[in-house]
Design a protein around this nucleic acid. Structure first.
Lengths: 267, 267
DNA sequence: AAAATAGTGTCTATGAGACACTATAGT
DNA sequence: ACTATAGTGTCTCATAGACACTATTTT
Protein backbone atom coordinates (compact mmCIF):
# COMPACT_ATOMS: atom_id res chain seq x y z
CA UNK A 1 0.00 0.00 0.00
CA UNK A 2 1.56 3.21 -1.15
CA UNK A 3 1.43 5.95 1.46
CA UNK A 4 1.63 9.24 -0.40
CA UNK A 5 1.00 11.07 2.85
CA UNK A 6 -1.13 14.15 2.47
CA UNK A 7 1.01 17.03 3.64
CA UNK A 8 0.13 18.38 7.09
CA UNK A 9 0.45 21.84 5.57
CA UNK A 10 -3.33 21.68 5.45
CA UNK A 11 -4.45 19.00 7.91
CA UNK A 12 -8.11 17.95 7.61
CA UNK A 13 -9.04 18.42 11.28
CA UNK A 14 -8.35 22.14 11.37
CA UNK A 15 -8.96 23.03 7.73
CA UNK A 16 -12.44 24.53 8.18
CA UNK A 17 -11.88 26.48 11.38
CA UNK A 18 -8.14 27.02 10.79
CA UNK A 19 -8.68 30.44 9.29
CA UNK A 20 -10.00 31.84 12.57
CA UNK A 21 -7.66 30.52 15.28
CA UNK A 22 -4.28 31.96 16.26
CA UNK A 23 -0.96 30.42 15.25
CA UNK A 24 -0.35 29.36 18.86
CA UNK A 25 -3.69 27.55 19.06
CA UNK A 26 -3.06 25.87 15.72
CA UNK A 27 0.33 24.57 16.82
CA UNK A 28 -1.01 23.34 20.16
CA UNK A 29 -3.67 21.26 18.35
CA UNK A 30 -1.25 20.05 15.71
CA UNK A 31 -0.24 16.42 15.99
CA UNK A 32 2.55 15.55 13.59
CA UNK A 33 2.61 11.89 14.62
CA UNK A 34 -0.36 11.10 12.38
CA UNK A 35 1.97 10.61 9.40
CA UNK A 36 4.33 7.70 8.98
CA UNK A 37 7.89 8.94 9.05
CA UNK A 38 11.23 7.66 7.74
CA UNK A 39 14.43 7.46 9.78
CA UNK A 40 17.10 10.01 8.94
CA UNK A 41 20.79 9.16 9.15
CA UNK A 42 24.04 10.95 8.38
CA UNK A 43 26.79 9.09 6.48
CA UNK A 44 30.21 10.70 6.20
CA UNK A 45 32.89 10.37 3.57
CA UNK A 46 36.06 11.10 5.55
CA UNK A 47 38.61 11.73 2.83
CA UNK A 48 42.33 12.31 2.74
CA UNK A 49 45.20 11.97 0.26
CA UNK A 50 48.32 9.98 1.06
CA UNK A 51 50.72 7.93 -0.97
CA UNK A 52 49.45 9.64 -4.11
CA UNK A 53 45.95 8.22 -3.67
CA UNK A 54 42.60 9.48 -2.46
CA UNK A 55 41.57 7.48 0.60
CA UNK A 56 38.48 7.21 2.77
CA UNK A 57 37.62 5.83 6.18
CA UNK A 58 35.41 2.71 6.21
CA UNK A 59 34.34 0.19 8.84
CA UNK A 60 33.92 -3.52 8.36
CA UNK A 61 30.36 -4.30 9.43
CA UNK A 62 30.24 -6.90 12.19
CA UNK A 63 26.43 -7.10 12.27
CA UNK A 64 23.57 -7.51 9.83
CA UNK A 65 22.59 -6.05 7.50
CA UNK A 66 25.47 -6.06 4.98
CA UNK A 67 27.59 -7.99 7.47
CA UNK A 68 31.21 -8.28 6.34
CA UNK A 69 30.88 -5.42 3.87
CA UNK A 70 32.43 -2.03 4.41
CA UNK A 71 30.42 1.05 5.37
CA UNK A 72 31.10 4.75 5.71
CA UNK A 73 30.96 6.09 9.27
CA UNK A 74 27.42 7.19 10.02
CA UNK A 75 24.52 7.10 12.41
CA UNK A 76 21.07 8.40 13.08
CA UNK A 77 20.19 12.05 13.53
CA UNK A 78 18.92 12.95 17.00
CA UNK A 79 15.39 14.29 17.13
CA UNK A 80 16.61 17.67 18.44
CA UNK A 81 19.91 17.68 16.60
CA UNK A 82 20.73 19.64 13.44
CA UNK A 83 22.21 17.74 10.50
CA UNK A 84 25.56 19.52 10.86
CA UNK A 85 25.59 18.76 14.60
CA UNK A 86 24.91 15.10 13.88
CA UNK A 87 27.79 15.03 11.41
CA UNK A 88 30.09 16.71 13.94
CA UNK A 89 29.06 14.27 16.68
CA UNK A 90 29.49 11.22 14.44
CA UNK A 91 32.93 12.40 13.32
CA UNK A 92 33.90 12.56 16.97
CA UNK A 93 32.24 9.29 18.03
CA UNK A 94 33.15 7.18 15.01
CA UNK A 95 36.51 8.59 13.91
CA UNK A 96 37.73 10.60 16.92
CA UNK A 97 38.00 13.67 14.70
CA UNK A 98 37.31 17.18 15.97
CA UNK A 99 37.63 20.56 14.32
CA UNK A 100 37.91 19.16 10.80
CA UNK A 101 36.34 20.69 7.72
CA UNK A 102 33.10 19.11 6.56
CA UNK A 103 30.15 20.01 4.37
CA UNK A 104 26.87 18.51 3.31
CA UNK A 105 27.05 16.54 0.08
CA UNK A 106 23.74 15.06 -1.07
CA UNK A 107 20.75 13.22 0.36
CA UNK A 108 20.11 9.61 -0.61
CA UNK A 109 16.55 8.51 -0.14
CA UNK A 110 15.69 5.55 -2.38
CA UNK A 111 13.11 3.44 -0.49
CA UNK A 112 15.13 0.21 -0.79
CA UNK A 113 18.58 1.58 0.05
CA UNK A 114 18.62 -0.01 3.53
CA UNK A 115 16.91 -3.36 4.20
CA UNK A 116 16.03 -2.32 7.78
CA UNK A 117 13.35 0.02 6.46
CA UNK A 118 12.99 3.53 5.18
CA UNK A 119 16.23 5.28 6.07
CA UNK A 120 17.09 8.54 4.35
CA UNK A 121 20.81 9.31 4.47
CA UNK A 122 22.15 12.85 4.40
CA UNK A 123 25.70 12.37 3.15
CA UNK A 124 28.54 14.58 4.35
CA UNK A 125 32.07 15.06 3.10
CA UNK A 126 34.87 15.63 5.63
CA UNK A 127 38.41 16.52 4.55
CA UNK A 128 41.37 15.77 6.80
CA UNK A 129 45.15 15.79 6.47
CA UNK A 130 46.58 12.24 6.42
CA UNK A 131 48.30 12.46 9.83
CA UNK A 132 44.92 13.18 11.47
CA UNK A 133 43.86 9.62 10.66
CA UNK A 134 46.59 7.87 12.67
CA UNK A 135 44.22 7.55 15.65
CA UNK A 136 41.37 6.31 13.45
CA UNK A 137 43.33 3.31 12.26
CA UNK A 138 43.30 1.90 15.78
CA UNK A 139 39.55 2.35 16.12
CA UNK A 140 37.18 -0.60 16.16
CA UNK A 141 37.35 -2.07 12.65
CA UNK A 142 38.29 1.17 10.94
CA UNK A 143 40.31 1.13 7.74
CA UNK A 144 41.62 3.87 5.49
CA UNK A 145 41.22 2.58 1.93
CA UNK A 146 42.21 3.70 -1.54
CA UNK A 147 39.41 4.95 -3.77
CA UNK A 148 39.04 3.79 -7.38
CA UNK A 149 37.08 6.02 -9.75
CA UNK A 150 36.28 4.67 -13.18
CA UNK A 151 34.76 7.74 -14.80
CA UNK A 152 36.55 10.81 -16.16
CA UNK A 153 36.16 14.43 -15.05
CA UNK A 154 32.93 15.28 -13.29
CA UNK A 155 30.82 12.72 -15.15
CA UNK A 156 29.75 11.08 -11.89
CA UNK A 157 28.93 7.49 -10.99
CA UNK A 158 29.84 5.00 -8.29
CA UNK A 159 33.33 4.62 -6.81
CA UNK A 160 34.86 1.59 -5.15
CA UNK A 161 37.54 0.92 -2.56
CA UNK A 162 40.64 -1.25 -2.46
CA UNK A 163 43.01 -2.33 0.26
CA UNK A 164 46.80 -1.91 0.20
CA UNK A 165 47.23 -5.16 -1.76
CA UNK A 166 44.82 -4.02 -4.46
CA UNK A 167 42.01 -6.28 -3.29
CA UNK A 168 38.50 -5.02 -3.92
CA UNK A 169 36.47 -4.41 -0.75
CA UNK A 170 32.67 -4.48 -1.14
CA UNK A 171 30.81 -1.40 0.09
CA UNK A 172 27.54 -1.75 2.00
CA UNK A 173 24.16 -0.28 1.01
CA UNK A 174 24.46 2.51 -1.59
CA UNK A 175 27.78 3.71 -0.18
CA UNK A 176 29.54 3.36 -3.53
CA UNK A 177 27.12 5.97 -4.89
CA UNK A 178 27.78 8.22 -1.90
CA UNK A 179 31.53 7.84 -2.40
CA UNK A 180 31.20 8.58 -6.11
CA UNK A 181 29.23 11.73 -5.34
CA UNK A 182 31.97 12.82 -2.93
CA UNK A 183 34.64 12.44 -5.61
CA UNK A 184 32.46 14.33 -8.08
CA UNK A 185 32.09 17.19 -5.60
CA UNK A 186 35.83 17.24 -4.90
CA UNK A 187 36.68 17.35 -8.60
CA UNK A 188 34.14 20.07 -9.30
CA UNK A 189 35.34 22.36 -6.50
CA UNK A 190 39.06 21.65 -6.67
CA UNK A 191 39.95 24.58 -8.92
CA UNK A 192 37.41 27.08 -7.68
CA UNK A 193 37.90 26.68 -3.94
CA UNK A 194 40.88 25.91 -1.70
CA UNK A 195 39.54 22.47 -0.67
CA UNK A 196 42.88 20.80 -1.44
CA UNK A 197 44.48 22.54 1.56
CA UNK A 198 42.06 20.76 3.89
CA UNK A 199 43.70 17.49 2.89
CA UNK A 200 47.22 18.64 3.74
CA UNK A 201 49.13 19.64 6.86
CA UNK A 202 49.40 23.34 7.64
CA UNK A 203 52.86 23.56 6.09
CA UNK A 204 53.13 22.07 2.63
CA UNK A 205 55.16 22.05 -0.54
CA UNK A 206 53.81 22.88 -3.99
CA UNK A 207 54.64 19.32 -4.98
CA UNK A 208 52.44 17.91 -2.19
CA UNK A 209 49.63 20.22 -3.29
CA UNK A 210 50.02 19.01 -6.86
CA UNK A 211 49.90 15.40 -5.65
CA UNK A 212 46.56 16.12 -3.99
CA UNK A 213 45.16 17.65 -7.17
CA UNK A 214 46.36 14.72 -9.24
CA UNK A 215 44.99 12.14 -6.80
CA UNK A 216 41.56 13.78 -6.88
CA UNK A 217 41.43 14.39 -10.63
CA UNK A 218 42.85 10.95 -11.31
CA UNK A 219 45.23 12.27 -13.95
CA UNK A 220 48.41 14.36 -14.14
CA UNK A 221 48.29 18.15 -14.15
CA UNK A 222 50.74 20.49 -15.87
CA UNK A 223 53.47 21.34 -13.36
CA UNK A 224 54.41 24.81 -14.61
CA UNK A 225 50.94 26.16 -15.00
CA UNK A 226 49.89 24.54 -11.72
CA UNK A 227 52.65 26.35 -9.81
CA UNK A 228 51.78 29.67 -11.44
CA UNK A 229 48.07 29.29 -10.76
CA UNK A 230 48.59 28.36 -7.11
CA UNK A 231 51.02 31.18 -6.43
CA UNK A 232 48.76 33.66 -8.26
CA UNK A 233 45.66 32.56 -6.33
CA UNK A 234 46.97 34.26 -3.17
CA UNK A 235 46.34 31.20 -0.99
CA UNK A 236 50.00 30.52 -0.27
CA UNK A 237 52.57 32.29 1.86
CA UNK A 238 56.22 31.24 1.81
CA UNK A 239 57.52 30.28 5.25
CA UNK A 240 61.20 30.73 4.32
CA UNK A 241 61.72 27.19 5.56
CA UNK A 242 62.49 24.22 3.35
CA UNK A 243 61.46 20.62 3.29
CA UNK A 244 63.61 18.16 5.28
CA UNK A 245 64.73 14.58 4.64
CA UNK A 246 64.08 14.65 0.91
CA UNK A 247 66.51 12.66 -1.20
CA UNK A 248 66.85 15.53 -3.64
CA UNK A 249 66.69 19.31 -3.65
CA UNK A 250 64.32 20.27 -0.80
CA UNK A 251 61.25 22.30 -1.79
CA UNK A 252 60.14 25.57 -0.26
CA UNK A 253 57.50 25.20 2.49
CA UNK A 254 54.31 27.26 2.18
CA UNK A 255 51.47 28.00 4.54
CA UNK A 256 47.81 28.20 3.51
CA UNK A 257 46.48 31.71 4.07
CA UNK A 258 43.10 32.93 2.87
CA UNK A 259 43.80 36.63 3.35
CA UNK A 260 40.53 38.23 2.46
CA UNK A 261 39.83 35.57 -0.14
CA UNK A 262 36.30 34.30 0.22
CA UNK A 263 35.43 30.62 0.44
CA UNK A 264 34.41 29.72 -2.18
CA UNK A 265 35.93 32.35 -4.41
CA UNK A 266 33.71 35.31 -5.20
CA UNK A 267 34.15 36.96 -8.52
CA UNK B 1 15.47 16.05 26.91
CA UNK B 2 17.92 15.68 24.09
CA UNK B 3 17.45 12.49 22.14
CA UNK B 4 20.76 11.70 20.49
CA UNK B 5 19.34 8.38 19.38
CA UNK B 6 21.78 5.53 19.51
CA UNK B 7 22.11 4.28 15.96
CA UNK B 8 20.25 1.03 15.27
CA UNK B 9 23.34 -0.04 13.36
CA UNK B 10 24.06 -2.06 16.49
CA UNK B 11 20.78 -2.40 18.39
CA UNK B 12 21.05 -3.65 22.00
CA UNK B 13 18.51 -6.47 21.71
CA UNK B 14 20.38 -8.44 19.06
CA UNK B 15 23.95 -7.36 19.81
CA UNK B 16 25.01 -10.47 21.70
CA UNK B 17 23.48 -13.11 19.49
CA UNK B 18 23.62 -11.02 16.29
CA UNK B 19 26.88 -12.53 15.16
CA UNK B 20 25.33 -15.97 14.78
CA UNK B 21 21.96 -15.37 13.09
CA UNK B 22 21.29 -14.90 9.39
CA UNK B 23 20.60 -11.53 7.80
CA UNK B 24 16.99 -12.58 7.18
CA UNK B 25 16.47 -13.46 10.85
CA UNK B 26 18.09 -10.22 11.94
CA UNK B 27 15.82 -8.12 9.74
CA UNK B 28 12.69 -10.01 10.83
CA UNK B 29 13.50 -9.21 14.48
CA UNK B 30 14.49 -5.63 13.74
CA UNK B 31 12.04 -2.97 14.90
CA UNK B 32 12.96 0.46 13.60
CA UNK B 33 10.08 2.18 15.39
CA UNK B 34 11.99 2.26 18.65
CA UNK B 35 13.67 5.53 17.65
CA UNK B 36 11.93 8.88 17.42
CA UNK B 37 11.93 10.06 13.86
CA UNK B 38 11.62 13.43 12.11
CA UNK B 39 9.26 14.19 9.25
CA UNK B 40 10.84 14.60 5.84
CA UNK B 41 9.50 17.06 3.30
CA UNK B 42 10.50 18.22 -0.17
CA UNK B 43 10.46 21.94 -0.97
CA UNK B 44 10.94 23.02 -4.58
CA UNK B 45 12.37 26.20 -6.03
CA UNK B 46 10.55 26.42 -9.38
CA UNK B 47 12.63 28.97 -11.25
CA UNK B 48 12.31 30.74 -14.56
CA UNK B 49 13.57 33.92 -16.20
CA UNK B 50 11.24 36.46 -17.75
CA UNK B 51 11.28 40.20 -18.15
CA UNK B 52 15.01 40.16 -17.47
CA UNK B 53 14.52 38.84 -13.94
CA UNK B 54 14.89 35.53 -12.18
CA UNK B 55 11.50 34.46 -10.84
CA UNK B 56 10.20 31.69 -8.61
CA UNK B 57 6.81 30.19 -7.82
CA UNK B 58 5.48 30.86 -4.30
CA UNK B 59 2.16 30.32 -2.54
CA UNK B 60 0.56 32.65 -0.04
CA UNK B 61 -0.07 30.54 3.04
CA UNK B 62 -3.73 30.52 4.07
CA UNK B 63 -3.17 28.48 7.23
CA UNK B 64 -0.90 28.50 10.24
CA UNK B 65 1.99 28.36 10.68
CA UNK B 66 3.49 31.36 8.84
CA UNK B 67 -0.01 32.34 7.71
CA UNK B 68 0.06 35.19 5.19
CA UNK B 69 3.70 34.61 4.34
CA UNK B 70 4.87 33.09 1.09
CA UNK B 71 6.16 29.55 0.81
CA UNK B 72 7.83 27.47 -1.86
CA UNK B 73 5.75 24.60 -3.20
CA UNK B 74 6.40 21.52 -1.10
CA UNK B 75 5.00 18.64 0.82
CA UNK B 76 5.83 15.51 2.75
CA UNK B 77 7.66 12.53 1.32
CA UNK B 78 5.62 9.35 1.17
CA UNK B 79 6.94 6.47 3.23
CA UNK B 80 7.53 4.35 0.11
CA UNK B 81 8.40 7.20 -2.19
CA UNK B 82 11.90 8.20 -3.33
CA UNK B 83 12.92 11.83 -2.89
CA UNK B 84 12.98 12.42 -6.65
CA UNK B 85 9.54 10.81 -6.99
CA UNK B 86 8.20 13.09 -4.24
CA UNK B 87 9.60 16.12 -6.06
CA UNK B 88 8.04 14.95 -9.35
CA UNK B 89 4.67 14.36 -7.67
CA UNK B 90 4.70 17.73 -5.91
CA UNK B 91 5.62 19.56 -9.11
CA UNK B 92 2.56 17.95 -10.68
CA UNK B 93 0.20 18.47 -7.74
CA UNK B 94 1.27 21.96 -6.71
CA UNK B 95 2.32 23.57 -9.98
CA UNK B 96 0.77 21.34 -12.67
CA UNK B 97 4.24 20.83 -14.16
CA UNK B 98 5.30 17.60 -15.81
CA UNK B 99 8.47 16.61 -17.64
CA UNK B 100 10.46 19.59 -16.39
CA UNK B 101 14.12 19.48 -15.39
CA UNK B 102 14.79 19.27 -11.66
CA UNK B 103 17.63 18.28 -9.38
CA UNK B 104 18.26 17.95 -5.67
CA UNK B 105 19.73 21.06 -4.09
CA UNK B 106 20.47 20.77 -0.37
CA UNK B 107 18.87 19.44 2.78
CA UNK B 108 17.76 21.83 5.50
CA UNK B 109 17.44 20.25 8.90
CA UNK B 110 17.75 22.84 11.67
CA UNK B 111 15.55 21.64 14.56
CA UNK B 112 13.61 24.92 14.80
CA UNK B 113 13.03 25.54 11.11
CA UNK B 114 9.32 24.62 11.27
CA UNK B 115 7.25 25.34 14.39
CA UNK B 116 5.11 22.22 13.83
CA UNK B 117 7.98 20.01 14.93
CA UNK B 118 11.04 18.36 13.50
CA UNK B 119 10.69 18.60 9.74
CA UNK B 120 13.73 18.04 7.57
CA UNK B 121 13.35 19.58 4.12
CA UNK B 122 15.13 18.19 1.08
CA UNK B 123 15.20 21.18 -1.28
CA UNK B 124 14.91 20.73 -5.03
CA UNK B 125 15.52 23.12 -7.90
CA UNK B 126 13.26 22.93 -10.97
CA UNK B 127 13.95 24.95 -14.11
CA UNK B 128 11.14 25.82 -16.50
CA UNK B 129 10.69 28.12 -19.50
CA UNK B 130 8.49 31.12 -18.66
CA UNK B 131 5.53 30.04 -20.83
CA UNK B 132 5.24 26.81 -18.83
CA UNK B 133 4.12 28.85 -15.83
CA UNK B 134 1.01 30.34 -17.45
CA UNK B 135 -1.15 27.58 -15.93
CA UNK B 136 0.50 27.96 -12.52
CA UNK B 137 -0.59 31.57 -12.20
CA UNK B 138 -4.21 30.45 -12.08
CA UNK B 139 -3.52 27.87 -9.36
CA UNK B 140 -4.77 28.36 -5.82
CA UNK B 141 -2.76 31.29 -4.45
CA UNK B 142 0.24 30.79 -6.70
CA UNK B 143 2.42 33.72 -7.67
CA UNK B 144 5.52 34.01 -9.82
CA UNK B 145 7.76 36.56 -8.07
CA UNK B 146 11.00 38.35 -8.82
CA UNK B 147 14.03 37.26 -6.83
CA UNK B 148 16.38 39.75 -5.16
CA UNK B 149 19.91 38.60 -4.38
CA UNK B 150 22.10 40.89 -2.29
CA UNK B 151 25.39 39.04 -2.47
CA UNK B 152 27.87 38.90 -5.36
CA UNK B 153 29.06 35.86 -7.29
CA UNK B 154 28.72 32.55 -5.51
CA UNK B 155 29.20 33.97 -2.01
CA UNK B 156 25.84 32.59 -0.87
CA UNK B 157 23.28 33.82 1.62
CA UNK B 158 19.53 34.38 1.75
CA UNK B 159 17.47 35.73 -1.15
CA UNK B 160 14.14 37.54 -1.02
CA UNK B 161 11.17 37.98 -3.31
CA UNK B 162 9.29 41.03 -4.59
CA UNK B 163 6.03 41.51 -6.45
CA UNK B 164 5.59 43.41 -9.72
CA UNK B 165 5.30 46.73 -7.87
CA UNK B 166 8.59 46.17 -6.05
CA UNK B 167 6.90 45.33 -2.75
CA UNK B 168 8.79 42.94 -0.49
CA UNK B 169 6.94 39.68 0.18
CA UNK B 170 7.95 37.81 3.35
CA UNK B 171 9.01 34.20 2.88
CA UNK B 172 7.89 31.52 5.36
CA UNK B 173 10.16 29.28 7.45
CA UNK B 174 13.75 29.17 6.14
CA UNK B 175 12.66 29.51 2.53
CA UNK B 176 14.84 32.57 1.96
CA UNK B 177 17.85 30.36 2.72
CA UNK B 178 16.57 27.69 0.34
CA UNK B 179 16.03 30.30 -2.35
CA UNK B 180 19.52 31.72 -1.79
CA UNK B 181 21.02 28.26 -2.11
CA UNK B 182 19.14 27.78 -5.39
CA UNK B 183 20.60 31.00 -6.80
CA UNK B 184 24.07 30.00 -5.61
CA UNK B 185 23.74 26.65 -7.40
CA UNK B 186 22.47 28.32 -10.58
CA UNK B 187 25.36 30.78 -10.61
CA UNK B 188 27.92 28.07 -9.93
CA UNK B 189 26.72 25.78 -12.72
CA UNK B 190 25.75 28.40 -15.30
CA UNK B 191 29.04 28.37 -17.21
CA UNK B 192 29.92 24.70 -16.78
CA UNK B 193 26.57 23.14 -17.69
CA UNK B 194 23.74 24.03 -20.09
CA UNK B 195 21.26 24.82 -17.28
CA UNK B 196 20.33 28.14 -18.91
CA UNK B 197 18.56 26.31 -21.75
CA UNK B 198 16.15 24.76 -19.24
CA UNK B 199 14.82 28.24 -18.56
CA UNK B 200 14.10 29.02 -22.20
CA UNK B 201 11.78 27.72 -24.91
CA UNK B 202 13.17 25.16 -27.33
CA UNK B 203 13.86 27.82 -29.94
CA UNK B 204 15.77 30.81 -28.67
CA UNK B 205 17.93 33.74 -29.69
CA UNK B 206 21.43 34.38 -28.38
CA UNK B 207 20.08 37.60 -26.87
CA UNK B 208 17.47 35.67 -24.85
CA UNK B 209 20.18 33.29 -23.66
CA UNK B 210 22.33 36.25 -22.62
CA UNK B 211 19.36 37.73 -20.73
CA UNK B 212 19.06 34.49 -18.77
CA UNK B 213 22.76 34.53 -17.87
CA UNK B 214 22.56 38.17 -16.81
CA UNK B 215 19.43 37.62 -14.73
CA UNK B 216 21.06 34.74 -12.86
CA UNK B 217 24.45 36.38 -12.38
CA UNK B 218 22.82 39.68 -11.47
CA UNK B 219 25.22 41.66 -13.63
CA UNK B 220 25.93 42.25 -17.32
CA UNK B 221 28.06 39.86 -19.34
CA UNK B 222 30.28 40.74 -22.29
CA UNK B 223 28.22 40.36 -25.46
CA UNK B 224 30.99 39.44 -27.89
CA UNK B 225 32.72 36.90 -25.78
CA UNK B 226 29.37 35.47 -24.65
CA UNK B 227 28.31 34.85 -28.26
CA UNK B 228 31.64 33.25 -29.09
CA UNK B 229 31.59 31.00 -26.02
CA UNK B 230 28.04 29.83 -26.61
CA UNK B 231 28.58 29.08 -30.30
CA UNK B 232 31.87 27.32 -29.52
CA UNK B 233 30.29 25.19 -26.76
CA UNK B 234 28.45 23.11 -29.36
CA UNK B 235 25.10 23.43 -27.58
CA UNK B 236 23.44 25.50 -30.30
CA UNK B 237 22.22 24.65 -33.76
CA UNK B 238 20.95 27.34 -36.12
CA UNK B 239 17.38 26.75 -37.30
CA UNK B 240 17.68 29.04 -40.32
CA UNK B 241 14.59 30.81 -39.00
CA UNK B 242 14.57 34.31 -37.56
CA UNK B 243 12.80 36.00 -34.70
CA UNK B 244 9.40 37.62 -35.41
CA UNK B 245 7.71 40.81 -34.21
CA UNK B 246 10.91 42.49 -33.05
CA UNK B 247 11.03 46.24 -33.52
CA UNK B 248 14.54 46.01 -34.92
CA UNK B 249 16.65 43.57 -36.88
CA UNK B 250 15.38 40.07 -36.04
CA UNK B 251 17.89 37.68 -34.52
CA UNK B 252 18.69 34.18 -35.71
CA UNK B 253 16.79 31.41 -33.92
CA UNK B 254 18.80 28.55 -32.43
CA UNK B 255 17.87 25.17 -31.01
CA UNK B 256 19.52 23.58 -27.98
CA UNK B 257 21.28 20.37 -28.95
CA UNK B 258 23.59 18.41 -26.69
CA UNK B 259 25.13 16.27 -29.40
CA UNK B 260 27.42 13.97 -27.49
CA UNK B 261 28.10 16.64 -24.91
CA UNK B 262 27.75 15.23 -21.41
CA UNK B 263 25.69 16.90 -18.70
CA UNK B 264 27.50 18.30 -16.85
CA UNK B 265 30.46 18.80 -19.11
CA UNK B 266 33.17 16.17 -18.86
CA UNK B 267 36.72 17.25 -19.48
C1' DA C 1 80.03 13.26 -10.60
C1' DA C 2 75.37 11.35 -11.06
C1' DA C 3 70.60 11.37 -10.01
C1' DA C 4 66.61 13.57 -8.84
C1' DT C 5 63.56 17.06 -8.10
C1' DA C 6 62.90 22.38 -7.39
C1' DG C 7 62.30 26.40 -9.63
C1' DT C 8 62.84 30.15 -13.68
C1' DG C 9 62.47 32.24 -18.35
C1' DT C 10 60.33 32.37 -22.56
C1' DC C 11 57.65 31.07 -26.62
C1' DT C 12 53.12 29.87 -28.40
C1' DA C 13 48.17 28.93 -28.59
C1' DT C 14 43.76 30.13 -26.86
C1' DG C 15 40.09 32.71 -25.14
C1' DA C 16 38.10 37.09 -23.05
C1' DG C 17 37.35 41.95 -23.46
C1' DA C 18 37.12 46.00 -26.26
C1' DC C 19 35.83 48.40 -30.18
C1' DA C 20 34.90 49.52 -34.86
C1' DC C 21 32.23 48.31 -38.46
C1' DT C 22 28.41 46.30 -41.36
C1' DA C 23 23.53 44.31 -41.73
C1' DT C 24 18.56 44.43 -41.35
C1' DA C 25 14.43 45.05 -39.24
C1' DG C 26 10.55 48.79 -37.67
C1' DT C 27 9.03 53.60 -37.63
C1' DA D 1 16.37 58.73 -43.20
C1' DC D 2 16.61 57.37 -38.35
C1' DT D 3 16.87 54.17 -34.58
C1' DA D 4 17.72 49.96 -32.48
C1' DT D 5 19.61 45.68 -32.24
C1' DA D 6 22.05 41.64 -34.78
C1' DG D 7 26.19 40.01 -36.15
C1' DT D 8 31.44 40.22 -37.96
C1' DG D 9 36.45 41.31 -37.99
C1' DT D 10 40.36 42.46 -35.57
C1' DC D 11 43.40 44.05 -31.89
C1' DT D 12 45.13 43.45 -27.21
C1' DC D 13 45.80 41.22 -22.92
C1' DA D 14 45.83 37.35 -19.65
C1' DT D 15 46.61 32.62 -18.90
C1' DA D 16 47.67 27.55 -19.94
C1' DG D 17 50.81 24.40 -21.94
C1' DA D 18 55.33 23.23 -23.57
C1' DC D 19 60.07 23.20 -23.21
C1' DA D 20 64.69 24.55 -22.26
C1' DC D 21 67.48 25.82 -18.77
C1' DT D 22 69.47 26.60 -14.04
C1' DA D 23 69.66 25.42 -8.89
C1' DT D 24 70.33 22.51 -4.96
C1' DT D 25 70.07 18.64 -2.41
C1' DT D 26 71.42 13.29 -1.47
C1' DT D 27 74.10 9.36 -2.74
Amino acid sequence: MRNVSKPPHAPEASEQKGTAITEEAFLAAYDMRQFERPSVAVDIVVATVSGGALRVVVYRRKEHPARGKYALPGGFVGIDESLDAAARRLLREKARLEGVFFEQLYTFGAPGRDPRGRIIAVAYLALVPPEALSAVASAHGARVCKVLVEWPGTAGGPASIFDEDGRYLPLAFDHSSILGTAVQRLRATLDATPVAFRLLPHELTLRALQDVHEAIRGRPVNKDSFRRRMLAAGWLEATGERERDASHRPAELYRFVSRGIAWPIVD
